[in-house]
């Protein structure tokens, strides 16, 4: 190749340039494909590891004892492996979180998508995003050391470790996520529908309640279901503020270990690899994975269906 002239095609082929470029393009294609395929591998690995390491547990403990037993005392001399106390605490805190997140989240999403001026939205959306990034251990600190002592003044019988406060904090924690997903769904409702409703003489709130919410319904439901999935899988707030004693109770003023809190508690202690205690972590982990998978699949399906509509 000379400096002045542009190389001709045959020169490029002769110098091996074309061959080299083809090779690089081919290698990169394979690398990109492998990177994308990694996600399939990770999902498979999660399922495989959870099944492999909990298998010996399910060989020893009948599935009905695990699912319907009311005592969870895996490290006692007379061990019981009923997961109900952990499951109930998990669902109770997630339910409390939804009690906060649904009304607050829906109101905020309607306000942001239908009422707020663009300038207000430009400020609030990034602020919500920042809140999504607050580390969960910090929320755990809030729940245990700030919120609980404060609420103890008003709620009689509220223990220092309880389910109520982590539930509330969890609700606040998933709020930004729920708001941003359901607001996206509301904004995706075509403006023509709104304009049609206005032309029929509807007021803003009527448009919001009778046009936008029904129009975005599957998207909004997806937001809450995905929020629920997050609340179920959340760990640190519960490990810190909901306690580590399995406790079958309907009273949110008492503390009770959730599935995630139990995994943290066992991981903090020295659990021998391959012991029954080690296997219990994976057994409850598998249960947790299945619950969140169920919520995620439903949420994913609803969101996709919603996208197809518009």
């Amino acid at each position: 190749m000379t400096n002045s002239a542009i190389p001709t095609g045959s020169e490029l082929i002769k110098s091996g340039f074309v061959k080299r470029r083809r090779m690089i393009a081919g290698i990169m294609r394979v690398f990109l494909f492998l990177s994308a395929a990694l996600s399939i591998f990770v999902t498979t690995a999660i399922v495989y590891i959870l099944l492999r390491d909990s298998w010996p547990f399910f060989m020893q403990i009948p599935l009905t004892d695990f699912l319907f037993g009311t005592m969870w005392t895996p490290v006692f001399a007379d061990p019981q492996f009923g997961v109900l106390p952990l499951l109930l605490a998990t669902l109770q805190t997630a339910g409390l979180a939804m009690l906060i997140a649904i009304p607050f989240g829906l109101t905020m999403a309607i306000y942001l998508s239908e009422y707020a001026k663009p300038a207000v939205r430009e400020v609030i959306k990034p602020a919500l995003e920042m809140l999504e990034a607050v580390p969960t251990v910090v929320y755990g600190y809030f729940a245990l050391l700030v919120m609980t002592p404060f609420l103890q003044q008003f709620v009689p019988g509220l223990k220092g470790i309880n389910l109520l406060v982590p539930g509330i904090i969890l609700g606040i924690m998933i709020l930004p996520y729920v708001v941003s997903v359901s607001e996206d769904a509301m904004r995706a409702v075509p403006n023509g529908l709104r304009e049609g409703a206005y032309a029929l003489g509807m007021a803003k709130w009527q448009v919001a309640v009778k046009v936008v919410i029904p129009g975005a319904f599957s998207g909004i439901t997806a937001a809450f279901i995905l929020g629920m999935s997050r609340a179920v899988g959340e760990t640190m707030v519960l490990a810190i503020a909901a306690g580590q004693n399995p406790n079958l109770t309907w009273d949110p003023r008492e503390g009770a270990a959730t599935i995630t809190a139990y995994i943290v508690q066992m991981s903090l202690g020295d659990v021998a690899h391959g012991s029954l205690a080690y296997q219990t972590i994976f057994a409850v982990g598998l249960l947790l994975f299945l619950i969140t998978l169920f919520f995620n699949v439903v949420g994913f399906y609803l969101r996709r269906k919603f996208r197809e509509v518009y």
Partner: peptide, 21 residues
């Protein structure tokens, strides 16, 4: 679908994956 699902897997499950793998 896998990417969407992995985004929703609780972080503690990734911890269990790491322990086992």
């Amino acid at each position: 679908i896998n990417v969407a699902n992995l985004a929703g897997v609780p972080s503690i499950i990734y911890g269990l994956l790491a322990v086992g793998m």
